[in-house]
Computed example of a mutant assay.
Amino acid sequence: MLQIKAKHQVVFVLLSCLICMDAMAQKRDKYEFYKDFPVYADKLLGQLTYPLAWGNSDIKDFIEWKSAARRKVFECMMTPPPEAKSYDVKVIGEEKREGYTARKLEFNLSDFYRVRAYVLIPDGEGPFPAVNLLHDHGAHLYIGKEKMIRPFDDDSLVLDDADKWVDNLYGGQYFGDYLAKNGYVVFSTDAPMWGERGRAEGVDRSKYDIIAGNMMMYGRNLSAFMTYDDIASTDFLATLPEVDPKRIGCAGCSMGAYRAWMLSALSDKISACAAVCWMITTDVQMTWKYGRKESGGFANCIPALRQYLDYPHIASIACPKPTLFISGTEDKLFKVPGVKKAFKIMHEVWDSQNAGGNLETELWPIPHSCGIEAQQRVLDFFNKKLK
C-alpha cells in the first residue's frame, strides 16, 4: 500500500513538472506584448504630450505654474499616510566617531508607522547645515539607510552586507559619514520595503510588485508613500536642535537620486539638491529602441502622472533652487540620449527664470555608481550652496 502511494506521489510530481515546462513553452502565433512592453508602445508614447509642463501649459506665471504642477503631482500620488500626532523620539543607540557622533533614533514618521533612522551630528557648535541622504534601490532590500550611513558594530550581519554594498556602489566610502566629517548633520531612514521596513518573511524582490499592487487595492500608492515619507522625514529633520532649518539639502544615487529631486520639487524645506544617476525622459526609458527597459517596478510608478508631466518637468518644479545632476555615459540604466533630453528641458526652465547658474548638469564617464569623486563633487556643491 505504501509503495503504491509513493508511486502515485512520484507520478504527480512528474506530471506537475511537465505541466510547468509546457506552460513555460506555450506561445501563440498572435500576441500583444513583446519584451515586457505592449506592441503599441510607440503609439502610447506618441500620446504623451505633457500638457502641464512649463512652456506647454496655459499658465504663464511661473509661481502659479509651480503651484498647479505640484498640486497635480500630489493628486496623482493619491492619499498620503496620516501625519504623526507626535514624533515621540527615542534614542536607541549612540556611537562616537571621528569628528561626529552617530545616533540611531526611533520615531513616528506617520500615524501608521514608527521607523528607525540614523543621524550623524558633527563635533562643534551648531546649528549645522543638514542633508537628508536617500538610499538607492539596487534590487537589494535587506539594507536601506545602512547603504548611506555606516551601521553600528553590534549588528555584524548588517555591517558586513553594508560594507560590501558600499564597496560596490560607493567606492568603499559611506556617503553619509563622509558628509558628517565635513560638517553636515546627516539623516537617513529606510524607504518602505527596505531594511527595517521590510517583510516579516524576509527579503524577496518578487514580492515588491505584489505588495505595491495590494496597496493600490487600498487606494494608496507605495512609491508615493516613499516620497510622502521623504517629505515627512525632512520636516522631522528640520526640528532637530542641531540643524539649521534654512540650510537643508537632499542627495542620493540611483533611486536615491529620484527620491532627491522628487523631494526637492515637493518640499519647500529643501534648499539644494544633488542627484547622481537618475534622470531621463520617458520616451527613451520606455522603448525597445535603446535596448533598455524600466525594471524598477513600482519604485517610481505614480499612476496617471505621465499624462501631465515627464520626469524633468517634475524636477523643474524645484526651480530656481540650486540643483546638481550627475549622470554616467557608461550607465546602462539611463541611456545618454534620454539624459541629454532631460537636461535640456530642465535648463530651459531654469534659464526662463534667469536662474540658469543654479542648475548644474554633468555627464561623467562612469557606470551606474556614486564613487568617491562623485561624492566629493556633491560635497563641493553643498559647501557652496548650504555653507
Rank of each mutant, 00 (worst) to 15 (best):
F175A: 09
K246S: 11
A69D: 02
T323W: 08
G198H: 05
A315M: 00
L386H: 05
E64C: 04
I317M: 04
V284L: 02
S86W: 15
N182M: 03
P337S: 04
A304N: 12
D310Y: 06
K384P: 08
S223F: 05
T79N: 13
S267I: 01
G202D: 05
Y118V: 00
D283A: 06
F382C: 14
L263W: 08
L157S: 09
V166R: 03
T189S: 07
D58V: 10
C20I: 15
Q353T: 09
E201D: 14
K96L: 01
S188F: 04
I317P: 00
D154E: 04
E348Q: 15
E242M: 04
Y184N: 03
P122W: 00
A69T: 05
M279E: 15
I63Q: 13
E362S: 10
A257S: 12
D351M: 08
F112I: 15
V185N: 02
M21C: 11
E125N: 14
K207G: 03
G195E: 03
G99N: 02
L309V: 01
V349M: 09
A53F: 01
Y87D: 12
L14N: 10
L237N: 07
N168Y: 12
K293L: 15
I63S: 14
S57H: 04
Y218R: 12
L266W: 05
V10G: 01
T287A: 01
N358Q: 12
T282P: 07
Q9T: 13
A117H: 06
D155I: 08
D154S: 03
M262W: 08
G328S: 03
A374V: 11
H368A: 05
F152W: 11
M262C: 03
M255A: 06
D351I: 07
S206D: 03
K181S: 01
I326C: 00
L15M: 03
G55I: 10
Q285Y: 04
W364A: 09
D190M: 07
I302S: 06
E373I: 10
M346R: 08
I248V: 02
W65I: 06
I210E: 11
A315T: 00
G176I: 02
D36S: 06
H135V: 13
L305P: 05
P312D: 04
G138T: 14
A315S: 00
K269P: 09
K66E: 07
K30V: 15
E196V: 07
G55L: 11
G176Y: 00
A212P: 01
A139N: 12
Y113Q: 15
T79Q: 10
D190H: 05
S352R: 12
D235L: 13
W194Q: 10
Y142L: 15
I149W: 08
T239M: 06
Q285N: 03
P367Y: 08
F381P: 01
M279W: 14
K181E: 00
Y31N: 10
Q9K: 14
E75H: 13
F187R: 11
D160P: 05
K90Q: 11
A342M: 13
W288A: 11
K145N: 10
E348L: 13
E348T: 11
S86Q: 15
E330H: 01
K60C: 05
P322D: 13
Y118D: 00
A374N: 10
N300S: 14
D155K: 09
M215H: 10
D235G: 12
R199V: 15
K145W: 06
I372R: 07
F33I: 14
D155Y: 08
W364N: 07
T281S: 03
N182K: 02
P151G: 09
I302H: 06
G183T: 11
L133F: 08
W278G: 10
Y50I: 07
